[in-house]
Design a protein around this nucleic acid. Structure first.
Lengths: 116, 116
DNA sequence: CGGAATCCGTAACGATACTG
DNA sequence: CAGTATCGTTACGGATTCCG
């Protein structure tokens, strides 16, 4: 029995690229594998595949395979996945609002460096 | 220039124990090091120290040292840290609401195991 | 009491090559 | 096009010991 369920949400967002993938899929509705890959600079196929599989396993995204040559695979959000949207928005808002604050912290740290 | 600021929030919550620490500190206002350690089963001093330092560096918690023997160090939330509360609450809510859903997923996975 | 220092194992991530 | 497979690296967390 757990008191704090923050972990549950955290677990799903955990991973270097998960939130980027979710951002793309909530913005674009349906995307193919390489389309997704192109839209996320720096990600490797391996990572994209791995994180998509985890999201699929958690029932956040749907993977739709078309049996054709060349292959075609489409990814999109599940309804359950869409329930994350308000949360992601809240995190984005908080992050935006306090980006300035973080810069200030870094600036102070730099000053301390100079004084030392 | 970043489009998605979810990372900013994620970065601060990242780490195995951060949210547990924040939970304790928002609930109890002010706590000493060992008090905090006792309240979080399984955490080691190293991890508690490390994560507290990160939180302190991000200006989420305050570390107050009393110059006395034996040492006394108190930790508490900053005002900035308290601005995280709505976000943490939102994450907690989402996690709670969908804990049931996750169980269902696991159950389905178990059934697939049996069918295979 | 509240740490710091050290060592270690694992899991996450990354780069590259290959495939149906 | 949409992946696997393999290997190497790095970061994270855990256990233990020592210290003012």
């Amino acid at each position: 029995m757990e008191i704090c369920k923050v972990d549950t949400a955290l677990e799903i967002l955990m991973g270097k690229w998960k939130h980027r993938i979710l951002f793309e899929l909530t913005t674009n509705d349906v995307m193919r594998f390489n389309e997704l890959k192109r839209s996320i600079p720096g990600i490797t196929q391996k990572m994209l595949t791995a994180q998509l599989r985890e999201l699929e396993h958690h029932d956040i995204v749907i993977r739709k395979v078309y049996a054709q040559i060349p292959p075609k695979v489409e990814y999109s959000m599940t309804e359950y996945g869409n329930s994350l949207q308000p949360l992601l928005a809240a995190m984005h808002d908080w992050g935006s609002k306090h980006a300035e604050h973080l810069k200030q912290i870094e600036k102070n740290a730099a000053l301390e460096q100079n004084n030392a």
